[in-house]
């Protein structure tokens, strides 16, 4: 296990001076991911918050080879890079033992726009790691809803009013969709648990074949939360089981230590209200007329959590009492 002191000696491959908002969750995620690399790496990134803030001409915050690509083609681009590396290696033009390829995209570029490229790349079995940093909306264009926005969240295209309680649809279970592609490694991680996140990045890079990592990264601007509470919210998402941490190696589900502790001691599971209360995008749900949405969120969280426990072969001790 690596200590933070050793991490401080690792170079900053995603440098300071990027123009993300104060308290940006995805920026923390990228810093942590770039500290977990095992060697030479090429990063390709779809349009999204982190692309916009890191490479404002003529400045770049990347200390690794980095390619920007269109919104829908992060995975297609990564496939091409991986195929080119294979040929170069065969022709002995590169002598590195391995060159890793990371495709980065936000939730818009994965859930909605990029899923066909991702699905194709996973099916073709290219050796790359796809990192989805999930800030639950199209944040840099002005906080529009995406397939990753959870039920009840108010965004500019699903505004909460007197009748409509924010987004009326549920969040798409993207990581489960990727497990269904039968790829060697799928995991969910949260910036609140950086050791777990970095271990999963390394596992995803080391595995032969496509790997998918779903990283929860709160956006203080879009979630209307306090900039100082970014890490606290990302931990609460795990503690309330809204975003449980698990990994599926060759399709076999297993809970990560943090979520396993909650599964074995169900009284540690917090009610979703604690998580919702910290974000002003859910503030309207606390009016009496929208209280039933909170119950619906809790029921949906419990349903998904119990389904996950079943997949992980953990006995159903964890049925919520709320």
């Amino acid at each position: 296990m690596i200590t933070i002191k050793e991490l401080t000696e690792k170079p900053e491959l995603f440098t300071a001076g990027h123009r993300a908002c104060a308290g940006c969750g995805p920026a923390i995620a990228l810093r942590q991911i770039m500290k977990a690399l095992r060697g030479p790496t090429i990063v390709t990134e779809a349009t999204g918050c982190m692309e916009v803030v890191s490479t404002i001409y003529p400045y770049t915050a990347w200390n690794v080879p980095w390619v920007h690509t269109a919104f829908e083609t992060a995975a297609a681009n990564a496939s091409g890079i991986e195929a080119a590396l294979k040929v170069l290696k065969r022709k002995k033009r590169i002598t590195h033992e391995h060159v890793d390829v990371i495709a980065l995209a936000g939730d818009g570029g994965t859930y909605d726009i990029g899923i066909q490229a991702l699905s194709g790349a996973a099916e073709r079995g290219h050796d790359f790691l796809y990192v989805l940093y999930d800030n639950e909306g199209y944040m840099n264009t002005g906080i529009q809803r995406s397939g990753g926005t959870p039920l009840g969240a108010s965004t500019t295209t699903s505004p909460a009013g007197t009748v409509i309680p924010g987004k009326t649809q549920h969040k798409k279970p993207i990581a489960d969709i990727m497990v269904a592609h039968d790829i060697p490694y799928v995991a969910t991680a949260s910036i609140g648990y950086w050791q777990d996140l970095m271990a999963k990045v390394r596992k995803g890079l080391e595995v032969e074949g496509p790997a998918f990592l779903h990283v929860m990264a709160p956006c203080p601007r879009g979630w209307r939360s306090d900039t100082a509470k970014t890490m606290e919210i990302s931990r609460l998402a795990v503690e309330t089981c809204v975003f449980p941490l698990w990994e599926a190696v060759n399709g076999e589900y297993g809970l990560s230590p943090i979520s396993k502790a909650i599964a074995l001691k169900p009284d540690r599971k917090k009610p979703v209200e604690v998580y919702l209360k910290m974000q002003r995008r859910f503030a309207h749900l606390f009016q009496p007329k929208f209280q039933h949405i909170i119950k619906e969120i809790q029921d949906d969280t419990d349903k998904r959590w119990n389904r996950l426990l079943k997949k992980c072969n953990i006995p159903q001790v964890a049925v919520s009492k709320t």
Partner: peptide, 28 residues
């Protein structure tokens, strides 16, 4: 936990250093 890599370890002084050129003051 710093989003801006503004907090670094100074090996010579063996101490933590804040780089106020980059700190955006988020308070994390």
């Amino acid at each position: 936990v710093c989003p801006d890599a503004a907090i670094q370890w100074n090996k010579e002084t063996q101490d933590i250093e804040f780089n106020y050129d980059f700190c955006k003051g988020c308070g994390i």
